[in-house]
Amino acid sequence: MSAAAASGATGATTGLAVRGLTVAVRGRALVDAASWHAPTGAITALVGPNGAGKSTMLRAIAGVLPERARRGGAVLLDGAALAGPGALPPRERARRVALVEQTADAVPQLTAREAVRLGRTPHHRMLGFSLGDERLVEAALADAGAAGLADRPLGELSGGELQRVHVARALAQQPRLLLLDEPTNHLDVAWQLELLQLVRRLAADRPVVMTVHDLALAATHADRVVLVDRGRVVAEGVPDAVLTPERIRAVYGVEAEIDAAPGGVAIRYRRMEP
């Protein structure tokens, strides 16, 4: 657990502030008046059961909810509105916020480099790419560990390789806020650590928010944890304050035994006794 956790927690205007965010589809609230904060310089993990609304929150922040979704509340990044009243226009928003989704479609014939180049889209007018862009694209590929994949068609990549390409595309966007939906999915343990190290580097000068199912991973690598259940924020703060056996029992319905060692947190789960 990093000491960075405490530093940004109080400043309400820097970093990402989600205020009373509500998303409803056909009258059903997927996110219900959620308020939380992701400070610059920290990794914030969104955790919660399946269907808790974690991904929906990320999509709402990135402005890619389906048209029929009704939304309310406000999302502010360093004081500028990403959603809600006076929100930035889509292109302007896309210059500041990058989202790596769990189920991004892959065009099989597009090469990895071409896919990463698309990350430059919001920074451009209609014509061509500048040479500076090409450097950024190569740097993003290298940072995400995808340099060796650059000329391969996406259709030939494995799930983990594809994930690295999607992260590289997000980096090419040069975002001031990085949103990752289950970024460690599809990655073997070595690449998980590699990715988390990259995320740590990226979090140095921007807020990073990632949804995570693995609570031990969240407790070990995130500075702050936001626990979500049925669209509502249950608790928010440093991991060991949020992820307690009581809360895990209340939210997930399982018994948890948390073992916080210096190298990382391990959690053993048991079904609850009837």
Binding site: A94, E101, A104, L118, T121
Partner: peptide
């Protein structure tokens, strides 16, 4: 890349 990914790119 899909409507959602396109939206995220503005």
């Amino acid at each position: 890349l899909g409507d959602s990914a396109a939206g995220a790119l503005g």
